[in-house]
Simulated scan of single mutants.
Amino acid sequence: MREFTEVDRGVTLSEALLRHDKWLEKKGIKTTNFAVVTWSNWDCRVMLESECRYKKIRKPPYFNRWINLKVPFSEVFSGVRCNLKEAVQMAGLAWQGRAHCGLDDAKNTARLLALLMRKGFKFSITNSMFHQCTDQSLTGKQPQEHLQFPLYQPHKLKDLHVPIIQFHPHCYCGVNSSKGMVRKPGPKQGSLFFGCGNWTAARGARCHYFEWASS
């Protein structure tokens, strides 16, 4: 009953999105290379998208790509599949609040993300709403739209009680990216990079993901 009362007293979706956008501007975040982080793809791919379409609300474009924290967490923990509460506890954190409460889930997702960031993990966009085909080749020039966090040196990492793994980045299609090498003569010749995992010689890339591989 308490949860329904809180929802009834809340603002509309359009007002919430507007307040959130103004908060991003006030904090100076909106002009940076930031990303939305979720636990699963449901919130951005299905729920928010369908609600905005149904209510004819303009959805801010930064909700069109996101980091599904399930992806890096699963790779770090050897492919384990679990819910958010189990993931938080598996990472050595105590769950705070009530499971499936939107605000509490968001706070615990942020705590889990912060822990992995402090450990030096490198994050990339895992999913997006864009799946259109392009004519770009992996050996050609592609937009460098990606999100990275610095990877700490191993001797500075705190013990997470699990092997420290730098997971293979995912492209905007949500699959493992393809690794390529620059063959065109020039200063970058021989450099390795990651691109769309759905790239084929016949149709090119399906998304604009691009990231230089760490040397």
Rank of each mutant, 00 (worst) to 15 (best):
G92D: 08
V7Y: 14
W212E: 04
V11G: 01
I57W: 07
V80Q: 12
T12M: 11
F63N: 06
G28V: 01
C173E: 10
N33D: 15
V37I: 15
E49N: 14
M117I: 12
S50P: 01
Q144G: 02
L160A: 14
W66S: 09
G97L: 10
H161V: 11
Q136K: 11
S178V: 15
R98W: 09
L13K: 06
A202Y: 07
E145R: 07
K156W: 04
Q136A: 13
Q144Y: 04
G195W: 05
N127W: 03
F77D: 00
M90D: 04
I165K: 08
G195Y: 08
A201C: 09
Q144C: 09
R65W: 11
K158P: 00
T5H: 14
M1T: 13
G79P: 06
L147W: 10
V175I: 15
S177P: 07
N176V: 07
F194D: 02
Q144W: 02
S177G: 11
V37M: 10
C82V: 15
V88N: 03
V71F: 04
I67E: 03
W212Q: 00
A87F: 01
F167T: 12
P187H: 10
I29M: 12
R118Q: 07
L192E: 02
L84Y: 04
I29W: 11
F4W: 11
M47F: 13
R203P: 00
Y152I: 01
R2W: 07
N108G: 12
P60I: 04
F130Q: 04
D8M: 14
Q89K: 13
T200C: 05
K179G: 03
T200K: 05
G92N: 06
A91D: 05
P185E: 12
H208G: 00
H20C: 14
K22T: 02
E86R: 08
V162K: 01
M117D: 02
C82A: 14
Q189Y: 00
C101H: 14
S40N: 15
L18P: 00
K141A: 10
L116A: 11
W95D: 08
A91M: 15
